[in-house]
Amino acid sequence: MPRLYGFEDMAYRRVRESEAEGIRAAASRRLLKQPYPAITEWMNAEGYRTTRGGLWKPDVLANVLDHPAIAGLEEDENRNLVETGGPAIIPREDFEAIRAMRPVHDPDKQRAPQREYLIPGLMGTCGLCTTSLGSSPSNRGSRGYRCAPSTAQHPGGCGKVRINADLLETYVAEHVLAELAKPDVSALIGQARDELLAQAALLRKEAAAARRRQKKLGVDYGRSPDMSLKAFRAADKELTQLIRESETKARLLEQVKHVPVGDIPDLVRWWKHAPMRAKKGVLVLMLEKVAVYPAASRGSRTVDADRVALHWRQWGAEAEELSA
């Protein structure tokens, strides 16, 4: 894990002034709404180099100016900016102003809305190899789910499963709504939702704790001559994986907050007009996994229990596992 440009150490306590002046200059230009390509061109011409000694690229500089540490800040587990007591290379107000200029905050630069898919990535899996299904439109443009073949960048997929999204989503929705219509199930919806949100909160805390351990690991590596680079990288990789897995699962479970609680007289009508985030929340609440298998014959549009296996969530089981 390379050090952050502008700092001598991984704890962001000692400023490297020769680099800090470059950050201040870049920040000043960005506050004047100069585009990143122009800023990096200027920095390279002035002789500024990255921590690895390379030329600056727009995305690399954008990441540096988006790092809270350059303003003596960090993000807590709720993504709020809090002061660390560390040195600030640029003022907080300048940092927040630069953050506000990110494309996500600019209505004119936001991406065009993408076609929505109902089944979340972690939930849809290939029945043959268990790899998560990805969204993949067909050659004709219709929405679809697919197990992508294994590549060097994305290893693991078998590439043998593809299914039309409309057919799969209709099948899943029919079975979920039928289950929700059962009185003994609908009576527990509120309790189950709170249970999953509590699990998500625990996962967020787990990820935050891992981030703190990762930060301490960087400090220890910088101070201790006994820790080898190999050992540091192995521990850092393990913590990164833990953080990624915890936050990914937390984001999945947090979707249940959009599930309505209370009596819904006509579930089918509600589903037809419900926003996608509420539908996804219902799926997360009810299902752990949707496993899809190959079609019986090429071009088959039949979707049944032989093609799709629904794994229903056992409320209470995951909470016990997390608290164990």
Rank of each mutant, 00 (worst) to 15 (best):
D59M: 05
E74R: 03
R79P: 05
I39A: 04
N78V: 02
T50Y: 01
E77D: 06
V60P: 01
V82Q: 07
P37F: 11
E46F: 12
P58T: 03
E41N: 14
T84A: 06
T50I: 11
A71D: 05
G85I: 03
T84H: 02
N44R: 14
V60D: 05
T40C: 14
P37I: 10
T51V: 15
P37A: 09
E74W: 01
M43S: 05
I70N: 02
M43Q: 05
L55I: 14
H67V: 09
A38K: 11
T40W: 03
G54E: 12
W42V: 14
E46W: 09
L81R: 00
Y36I: 12
L73A: 01
N44H: 15
A71Y: 07
I39N: 02
G86R: 00
P68S: 03
W42D: 13
G54K: 11
A71W: 02
R49F: 14
V64K: 02
D59W: 02
N78L: 08
T50F: 03
L55P: 08
P58A: 11
A69N: 01
R49T: 15
G54T: 12
A38L: 08
N63E: 12
L73K: 00
G47Q: 14
G53N: 07
N63S: 12
E46A: 15
E75H: 08
A69M: 06
E75G: 00
Y36F: 15
D59F: 04
